[in-house]
């Protein structure tokens, strides 16, 4: 498999009243295309920070993130935005759907940002919502959907531009175990069917074990297990 992401010496420090607090300490990682990885670790260890840096929502204090051979933090703001639009899909713990928009409008938003024809964007979003089993809830607003449904809309939105890398930050954290398991099955299915590389942050050890590569973040460093 081709190398998709190459992380080298990734460091992230926060500063609190001029005091340096290291969160990520020189992480090095390589992710192949089509892989499914889990990332576990105690709360506050920096899992979300790692995901945000990897997804270019935040900048590293040092280190490089090479995506298909390109250092993403060397890109301009516009190029970085385009990179996020086309190559990365995010699923957050709290779905972060836009409350004023319906499910289909939420799901088609990345395509609209890409300046896709609205009709085409809507068709694509509808197809993805059908894929995640929400064909009957297309025109419902987030407030009218259950937690699991909301998370599935978020998943459809993340997949809208057919990203190469899907980053999911505790996507089942707010869901009951059964619904959470459903979401994980869906991720697994998408990985199998669409070949999307997935990195999933989770607290659920059982779910994490189902993935081929399991990463554990501890004191700013990554441990890796293969199953």
């Amino acid at each position: 498999m081709a190398n998709l992401v190459q992380i080298a010496g990734l460091t992230k420090d926060y500063f609190l009243e001029h005091k340096r607090i290291p969160v990520l300490r020189g992480i090095t990682l390589s992710i192949e295309q089509g892989e499914m990885l889990s990332l576990v670790g105690p709360s506050g260890v920096g899992k979300s920070t790692f995901l945000q840096v990897l997804g270019t929502l935040d900048t590293p204090s040092a280190g490089t993130v090479m995506f298909e051979g390109v250092d993403v933090f060397g890109l301009t703001d516009n190029a970085l935005a385009d990179f996020r639009n086309k190559s990365i899909g995010f699923v957050f713990q709290s779905h972060y759907l836009l409350p004023e928009f319906t499910a289909v409008q939420n799901a088609m938003m990345p395509a609209l940002i890409h300046r896709m024809d609205p009709g085409e964007a809507e068709a694509r979003a509808t197809e993805l919502l059908r894929l995640v089993g929400l064909e009957s809830r297309l025109h419902h607003k987030p407030g009218e959907l259950s937690g699991g449904e909301q998370q599935r809309v978020a998943l459809a939105r993340a997949l809208c531009m057919h990203p190469k890398l899907l980053l999911a930050d505790e996507p089942t954290g707010n869901l009951d175990p059964e619904t959470g398991a459903g979401i994980h099955r869906l991720l697994d299915d998408l990985n199998q069917r669409l070949g999307i590389t997935c990195l999933v942050v989770t607290h659920n050890a059982e779910l994490a074990k189902n993935m081929r590569r399991q990463l554990r973040l501890r004191e700013g460093q990554l441990d890796e297990h293969l199953s």
Binding site: Y14, F15, A62, T64, V70, G74, D77, N78
Partner: peptide, 27 residues
């Protein structure tokens, strides 16, 4: 560990970025 209120420093991109990775239309 709880994350403190971040006041991130300016990224030190120039120290680790290879020249060819910098876009020509840099700001």
């Amino acid at each position: 560990m709880s994350e403190p209120n971040p006041t991130p420093p300016a990224p030190q991109r120039e120290t680790y970025l290879p020249a060819e990775a910098v876009s020509r239309d840099a700001p």
